[in-house]
Write a protein that binds this DNA or RNA. Structure first.
Lengths: 184, 184
DNA sequence: CCGCGGCGTTCCGTTTACGGAACGGTGCGA
DNA sequence: TCGCACCGTTCCGTAAACGGAACGCCGCGG
């Protein structure tokens, strides 16, 4: 195995989690030693975490956020926009409702832009509510159209696409529904 | 308010992250082996992660979410409400804007309820915008009053409190501003 | 019938994140 | 000036998370 084990990339650094811990800690006027004490972890652990030279475990992250009085979400970066070639989608929430998983996105599509997406797994459906602009979307061979306030849906187990018709950008909410495969 | 040094031993299993990974994976029709392959991690690692018998590192979690095409936030539970003795506050977002950290909460205070909070560090201020009800809040010895649509703020480096005046519950947005101490 | 490929789990040696104890640096009161 | 308390970093032995290679199981095709 190629041992580039010199200056380790340090994932915690690239995600900004280390810097965020430092910010949240100093915002409360806590020293590193004091936070480590309250969190019940070693100073070495917290030092390495903030510096980004370690790869912390979930347990460590929980200990830190608990000591700060915050949920774990406070440490992970806000859901960044996912840039397609044309569309910009930001994941708002994930719901795990028993046998079905939903993912709710906010979609922004510049006027005239077209975005295609490969087929998902069988049974997956997409549901769009348009807030602004006119959206043409659905299976590539049989697209649907929706204006402001309207709602469309289609099976997403075939290649599909999104297109902003007309002169205005499209703002919409996209809900992807993933039914779980039969349990047996 | 986020203060108590109450460190709760939160284990990897109680967070439901394992179950969430299983849900998101099966939602996409992926086998455990397949996801492990795409994520570039061992099957043993993913198996233990989903079963909750391991304490995954940040790197592992990141590899899994990336392979699922999701941000890391998709794995951590939605910010849960923080129950004070009376108030219920849910952290909506954390902003790290250079030398200042902001925490944005949604606050719900039942009619007649009173909630106090110990002093924060010097320089910290709280800003409240009331949506419904009448809120009496601020330093305990010199409280302020705000009705629907109004906004109040006060230095939070002294003990302060919140009280829902009148017959209606209070719904409000609370922004806590933590200026970072001057760099050494 | 047997073989083959894929599944999820378990075993095991290696890697590494962990906390405690050191370290040097700094501010402050005696 | 000296202690002394605390800071954040580094060292180091131990615990455990890691990936690879087994394992047993099942469905399917020859």
């Amino acid at each position: 195995m190629p041992d580039a084990a010199e200056g380790r990339p340090a994932l915690a650094e690239s995600t900004g989690i280390g810097a965020r811990v430092t910010a949240l800690r100093s915002a409360r006027g806590l020293s590193l030693s004091e936070l480590a004490r309250r969190a019940g972890i070693g100073k070495a652990t917290l030092s390495g975490l903030e510096a980004g030279t370690r790869n912390p475990t979930l347990e460590t992250l929980y200990a830190v956020t608990s000591a700060l009085g915050l949920p774990l979400t406070a440490l992970v970066a806000a859901p960044g926009p996912i840039r397609g070639s044309a569309a910009e989608m930001a994941l708002l929430r994930v719901f795990d409702d028993g046998p079905v998983t939903y993912e709710l996105y906010r979609m922004h599509l510049p006027a005239g832009a077209t975005q295609t997406s490969p087929a998902h797994h069988a049974g997956v459906t997409e549901h769009v509510t348009v807030f602004a602009g006119v959206l043409r979307s659905g299976p590539l061979d049989r697209p649907l159209r929706a204006g402001p306030g309207e709602h469309v849906e289609w099976p997403a187990d075939v290649p599909h696409g999104y297109e902003a018709e007309g002169p205005a950008d499209v703002e919409a909410a996209l809900l992807i529904r993933y039914p779980h495969p039969p349990s047996p």
